[in-house]
Amino acid sequence: MRKKVLILPIVMAFMALVLSGCEPLMVFDAKGPNARTLSTTILISIATMVIILLAVYIILAVVLVKYRASKLPADYEPPFEEGNRKLEFVWTAIPIVIVAFLSVVTIWSLEKVENPQTEDYANTEPLVIYASSSEWKWHFSYPEQNIETVNYVNIPTDRPIEFRLYSYGMMTSFWVPQLAGQKYAMSDMTTTIHLAADEAGEYFGRNSLFNGPGFEAQQFEVQAMEQAKFDEWTQDVKSTEPELTEQKFNELLNAAHVGRESFSSTHLSFSPAPASHHDMMNAESYNKSKADQTGNGKLNIHRHTDSH
């Protein structure tokens, strides 16, 4: 009877694999060095945890089989057992060792994914893209190319990308599972997330932090393409798309949802990003950043909109 509970998770895991059609889960289907580091970290932790689960399950199964009342003589009286120093030491020490091991793995992987010199592409100059959210949209500004897109972002492959994140309004979380993890975008501080794509392709990205009625639809697409194609695309945007005026940008901010859009200039000149964490710790630069931002478009807030 007890075994049912024990084998249940295994059966479920198997079922899940069958149901998901054996396609790798998004988090494990990494297409860049940082996502791969995270996926490796997760697999290491799963492997470690399976050992612990097995230890507990085996002891539980043995105890339940051997010491059930129905298997024991009627006059059996369990002994008094105070405890066992040696055993207690063992099961304190082993978990400490495991925690120490996983701590090392954590720091190792944190160092890797937080490093501006993204692994494998350490000698390449990163491309800086500002990603800002407003209501249920994402704005991507390319200061180097001086172009801006809405709800999609194209990046060159084999080059580290530094996304600088902030928000016009609600706190959101920028997440591209196949290329990196996630980071919050907030209204009063810029955060940074690093990633690089090894392969050309289209990757799913979204805001993962609940932020009101239109939350579900706040997705974007990351298109990774070879550098030459990327350059071609930026040239194309520069020559064919309109400039992003302050008025147009405010219109965008005030819309609940919009489709994909492209512009041949960015909003950074008239509505700069907030201070970074480092600058926030310094009163002078913090105040300056706050003063710069007062010019930001005032949001028209969509309170009771049902999305779609």
Partner: peptide, 25 residues
Amino acid sequence: IPIFTIGGVTGVMLAMASADYQYHN
């Protein structure tokens, strides 16, 4: 005991800040 232990070990997995970048939310 067996079910909570799954909760416990996944808690340790979530505790690893880097991996949490993928699990969060």
